[in-house]
Amino acid sequence: MSVQNAAERSERPGGGAAAVPAGQPQKGTSLVKRGMADMLKGGVIMDVVTPEQAKIAEDAGAVAVMALERVPADIRVQGGVARMSDPDMIDGIIAAVSIPVMAKCRIGHFVEAQVLQAIGVDYIDESEVLTPADEAHHVNKWDFTVPFVCGATNLGEALRRITEGAAMVRSKGEAGTGNVIEATTHMRAIRSQIRKLTTLSPEELYSAAKELQAPYELVAEVAAAGRLPVVLFTAGGLATPADAAMMMQLGADGVFVGSGIFKSGDPAARAAAIVKATTFYDDPDVIAKVSRGLGEPMVGINLDTLAPEQRYAGRGW
């Protein structure tokens, strides 16, 4: 498989020098993958299901779009197995916009990931919103040139995904609900666990690594830096400019908005407002101004009414 070349392998933690001859360009390195996510910071990534929606998102100032066949709210309603999108549909969206295009593969479905890389998507989201394809393993993301973003509900999960090669993490929230409570819980959990790590002594870090079920070296790196070694976005249930700004104030580097935009009354206006609120997340005057006249938000679901099997955040291990 062409994606498994020595240069990418060398990017594993503790890997040796690259096998690419000196002076030649190197693709798919950690620097290039994580750097791509750095360029998305302070931005909004929007779920779209058609080229027309992708244009609306780009015109509203989205930093990227997530191409998928059904937004999470519809996956919830319609049920069935949710899979990678049709390549033709993704191609249509790639052709429609100049901003980066992301697409989702099922957890553990490495062939869907290979297909998405072959199509030329800019980032793959190995996502719990789709029906998982493997109940024990995630995709070995070091095998790919294209970078991956993965969901996490807590620090241990985030570090395990980074160990598997994720170049970006998003807190999971509960997608397709229009309810921000789980996003809040997961962002607070990740940030609080990182803060806790920074206070531990070296011997305590060993036992923290055991509890987090993550490699000691990565745990020690996070403890020393006080942050993840990759960009951390928030996702799952954001529906308003204030939701986006709240996640930014809680320490997110940027936000994903899924059903919240195109399930609302005026998607173009809401998308533009969320973009502005994400940039001026610490300025209530701006957030108040952009929150006016947006029409109906998506209806939303009270999470107390969701059965455990209807919750996506529990998918992934």
């Binding site: 000196a22 190197q26 750097g35 980066p100 800019d122």
Partner: peptide
């Protein structure tokens, strides 16, 4: 985006005029 999409992003050594010392490690992203 002249260098292509993300799968084409790369890093390489580059000579930069006005910069003394070894070549510059340049990271190109889309």
């Amino acid at each position: 985006n002249a260098f292509g999409r993300q799968v084409d992003s790369f890093e390489r050594d580059l000579d930069v005029k006005g910069i003394d010392g070894p070549p510059y490690r340049a990271v190109f992203i889309r």
